[in-house]
Write a protein that binds this DNA or RNA. Structure first.
Lengths: 229, 229
DNA sequence: CGATTCATTGACTAGAATCAAATACCGTGG
DNA sequence: CCACGGTATTTGATTCTAGTCAATGAATCG
């Protein structure tokens, strides 16, 4: 049963930590009042596909999601990764511009778009939050753009690791990467071989170390920051 | 003297042509009721700078504008070009994320952000337009992203020319480029030499011809579209 | 018309892609 | 616990695209 006038989106106070795990520093920090369903997706399961009508607004509760596009020749570009607390899938147009898949087993909160629209129409604060959400996605896309246009492989990897560290609320420089090397490559506009080689070189340079394939320990943040500039 | 409740933004009907020259197919087709000032900017004049507080919303009336960022090592990335009819400069945050300059002598409509905010608060249709605007900028940034991540020089040039043709409402495949080769290079993540060479090669391949340095005549749209895929 | 900026062309280099193979990791079943 | 098959990752050799450095040619503006 829905409230008569539900609060749909609420920007979180910076230091707050909600029970389903927000993404600190992600720039997409909202709480979604659990008025929608919370749905599990298996590893690699499709959440929505490109060109489908956008029926829902999503928020990652647990796991990780990739948003991507396939080019006609098979190349894949990952546009964004979504981590717990991140909102995604809301569109201004009438189709999804990207596909979305769960990277690992994930659970996702889902709210009907029609509900969002209705609330936004009545409540200018919610309308403003929608605008801010789009603006934050835009800011991320612009940063990503810059990375792809003007940065070398080492700089892309450095920026990626710093971003992941920030977004996953890294304790002591330990970052757990939820995605495979191929995903990182497709996000950074590189090949998997270049990602792998660059990792190896940076480990040799003691910039970071690999506690396992997916667990990174940042050792020289100054060096990473320098590459990130 | 302002209206008590001015209509600030009005989406244009598709085939309409407003007197100050909109950008057909640009995805940013709005009319700005002339309640702000119309200001002239000389070639290369700064409209706003990165990190400045965003005080205004702008619309190109005549000319062209580039939005860009300078990296610490002097590299420049142009994030977007704005043509007549395009809205730009509105930010969700408290600083401009890019700088903006007039490419050629231009005139720009300017409305105070505080006015926009006030109107959006009262009028949910205007709030929605602001959201749509951000979403359209996002869509452009995403397309641009894809181009930079996954496309070769020829493909980038092809996409750029098709985009410019579409946005400038090309009559018979004639496109007037308002920007210099260096701007194109900095937009496409290439060097000026690569842009120049690629132009030359595509002219030899009869994909297009140059009526002058800045005037392009598209000859083989199929070839361009193929590269654009 | 001359000065300056902009664009093109050429020779060479660097960085990442490609092609190919070896190694590590992981879940499953014996 | 270990062997096995499949997947993911790393490493190596080579190629190719675009960048860099350098010089020439064209366009534009007082």
């Amino acid at each position: 049963m829905l409230h008569a006038d539900p609060v749909l989106l609420r920007r979180e106070a910076e230091p707050t930590q909600s029970f389903y795990g927000p993404a600190p520093g992600s720039g997409l920090r909202f709480s979604l009042v659990p008025m929608g369903a919370c749905i599990p997706f298996a590893r690699n399961a499709e959440i929505y596909a490109e060109d489908e009508p956008p029926e829902y607004l999503y928020m990652v509760a647990k796991g990780a999601v990739r948003s991507y596009k396939l080019l006609s020749d098979g190349r894949r570009q990952i546009e964004a990764f979504y981590l717990p607390g991140d909102l995604f899938g809301i569109e201004a147009g009438d189709k999804h511009r990207f596909s979305a898949e769960a990277i690992s087993g994930s659970t996702v909160w889902v709210v009907k778009r029609s509900v969002v629209d209705r609330v936004a129409q009545r409540d200018s604060a919610v309308a403003r939050e929608l605008w801010m959400l789009a603006a934050q996605h835009l800011a991320r896309a612009q940063d990503h753009l810059l990375l792809l246009a003007r940065h070398k492989a080492h700089e892309r990897i450095a920026a990626f690791l710093l971003e992941m560290a920030k977004r996953s609320g890294d304790a002591e420089g330990e970052v757990e990467l939820p995605m495979a090397r191929q995903d990182i490559a497709d996000y950074l506009g590189l090949t998997i071989e270049t990602v792998s080689r660059t990792f190896t070189e940076m480990v040799h340079a003691a910039t970071f170390s690999l506690r396992s394939t997916r667990r990174v320990l940042l050792r020289d943040r100054a060096a990473l920051a320098r590459l990130n500039a």
